[in-house]
């Protein structure tokens, strides 16, 4: 029964234009991340070459090219920003549609007048969302690996592919949390527009507002994975920065930076510990969805919104 609901959800999402459009944007941005990484690397190397020629003209020795030591996957560093921005929006829409479709068409009445329990329904919806996200991120992984191959003119090594797999695995968990937020918003409200706005409000808070407090109001913290902030003199932000381990977007970016080797290294145990709040959030969100679903009134008709 769970697989029936999950596979039905996958089929229904394949026909949703909004979802397909967002998916297209995410995959295009994935490809763009490679292009941008290649472009910035080429510019920097060009500047280095120009400087080398100037130094040689002056009869001075040039230092060794430091950019050749740049990790191969570093050119995908923009993906760490695109996933919390576009990927999370896509996941919100996915979660929203998976429940809202049943509400809007009054179909929930048909589903629950059959041998479907609320827990089975939720398990099917979460499984469907998880499977769709896995397919999306696997596609993104292929695009990323292809970008790395084209830009570096060498096939990514097994280790690099492993790192890419880890990065997209972490992204899957991150996006699953947002898909659950999309579902919860529909279950908690009686109107589709309000549900979508509420979910987007939660996305804004998680992605932009909380990092401002937990990172001491550093303006770039909401976008870039910067560790060791300059300490703020304001007591309020000193206190709020203590909650930084629970700022999932910051932890996601830091761990992603570690995986793609764009962030400073740290002990492995610390990196693993950073993923725990994200896993905890996903579990809490599933519990909230289960409670809301158990009280949700699916007897309402299509025109009752």
């Amino acid at each position: 029964m769970i697989t029936t609901i999950a596979s039905h959800q996958i089929l229904a999402l394949r026909r949703q234009r909004v979802f397909i459009a967002l998916l297209g944007i995410l995959l295009a941005m994935t490809a763009l991340a490679g292009v941008l990484g290649w472009s910035s690397h080429r510019t920097i190397v060009g500047v280095y070459g120009e400087a080398t020629r100037l130094l040689a003209a002056q009869g001075q020795p040039a230092p060794a090219n430091p950019f050749t030591l740049k990790p191969t996957l570093a050119l995908l560093s923009n993906m760490v920003i695109y996933i919390p921005l576009i990927g999370a929006l896509l996941a919100l829409v996915l979660g929203h549609l998976s429940i809202a479709d049943d509400e809007a068409g009054g179909v929930g009445r048909l589903v629950f007048s059959r041998r479907v329990s609320r827990n089975t329904y939720l398990a099917g919806k979460v499984t469907g969302a998880a499977a769709v996200l896995a397919v999306i991120l696997a596609s993104s992984l292929v695009v990323s690996a292809t970008s790395v191959w084209i830009v570096n003119r060498t096939v990514p090594t097994i280790a690099e592919l492993g790192r890419l797999g880890l990065f997209y695995g972490l992204s899957w968990l991150y996006l699953l949390a947002f898909a659950l937020i999309g579902m919860i918003a529909v279950l908690a409200t009686r109107s589709k527009p309000i549900a979508l706005l509420s979910a987007m409000g939660a996305w804004l808070v998680i992605t932009f507002v909380i990092p401002q407090f937990t990172s001491g109001l550093r303006p770039t913290a909401s976008l870039n994975p910067i560790i060791d902030p300059v300490s703020t003199s304001q007591t309020f932000f000193k206190v709020t920065s203590k909650a930084r381990p629970f700022s999932v977007v910051e932890q996601y970016k830091t761990v992603s930076g570690r995986i793609l080797e764009t962030a400073p290294s740290e002990p492995m145990a610390q990196t693993i510990a950073r993923t725990l709040p994200l896993a905890l959030l996903a579990i809490v969100l599933i519990a909230i969805a289960a409670v809301l679903l158990s009280h949700h009134d699916f007897s309402r008709g299509a025109g009752d919104e």
């Binding site: 029964m1 029936t4 609901i5 039905h8 089929l11 229904a12 026909r15 949703q16 479709d101 809007a104 068409g105 009054g106 179909v107 009445r109 048909l110 589903v111 007048s113 059959r114 041998r115 479907v116 008709g301 299509a302 025109g303």
Partner: peptide, 27 residues
């Protein structure tokens, strides 16, 4: 079996796909 008033089913799916889903849910 139940047919509510104003039910729209899944508009993006074909009639057969809708029916297959509900048949599968019926076991």
């Amino acid at each position: 079996g139940y047919l509510p008033s104003d039910v729209r089913m899944y508009p993006h799916l074909t009639a057969r796909e809708n029916l297959e889903f509900f048949a599968a849910l019926s076991g």
